[in-house]
Simulated assay, not measured.
Amino acid sequence: MIPWLPFPIVSLALCALWLLLNQTLDPANLLFGAALGIAAPLLSRRLQPLGYPRLHAPLTAVRLIAVATVEIVRSCFNVCYVILFRDFSTVKSQFIRIPLDLHDPYGLAMLACLINMTPGTVLVEIFPDQHEMSLHVFDLHDETWWVEMIKTRYEQPLIAIFETAPV
Rank of each mutant, 00 (worst) to 15 (best):
M1L: 12
M1V: 12
P3V: 08
W4I: 15
W4K: 10
L5K: 14
P6W: 06
P6L: 06
F7Y: 15
A13T: 10
A13K: 07
L14G: 07
A16L: 15
L17M: 12
L17N: 06
L20D: 08
G33P: 11
G33H: 11
L36K: 08
G37M: 10
I38K: 04
S44V: 08
L47H: 07
L47F: 10
Q48K: 13
P49Q: 00
P49H: 00
G51C: 11
Y52V: 09
Y52N: 12
P53F: 00
P53V: 00
H56C: 05
P58H: 03
L59W: 14
T60R: 03
A61V: 05
V62I: 15
R63T: 00
R63G: 00
A66N: 02
V70H: 07
R74K: 11
C76F: 13
C76R: 14
V79T: 02
C80H: 09
I83D: 03
L84W: 13
F88K: 13
S89H: 11
S89Q: 14
T90Y: 08
Q94C: 08
F95Y: 12
I96N: 02
R97E: 15
R97W: 12
H103N: 11
D104R: 02
P105I: 00
P105T: 03
Y106W: 13
G107D: 01
L108G: 00
L108N: 01
A109D: 04
M117I: 05
G120L: 03
V124L: 13
E125L: 10
P128M: 06
S134R: 10
H136S: 06
H136Y: 10
H136N: 08
F138N: 01
D139P: 04
L140D: 05
H141T: 08
W146Y: 14
W146V: 13
W146H: 11
E148G: 15
Y154T: 00
P157N: 04
A160G: 01
I161Q: 04
F162G: 01
T164E: 14
A165K: 14
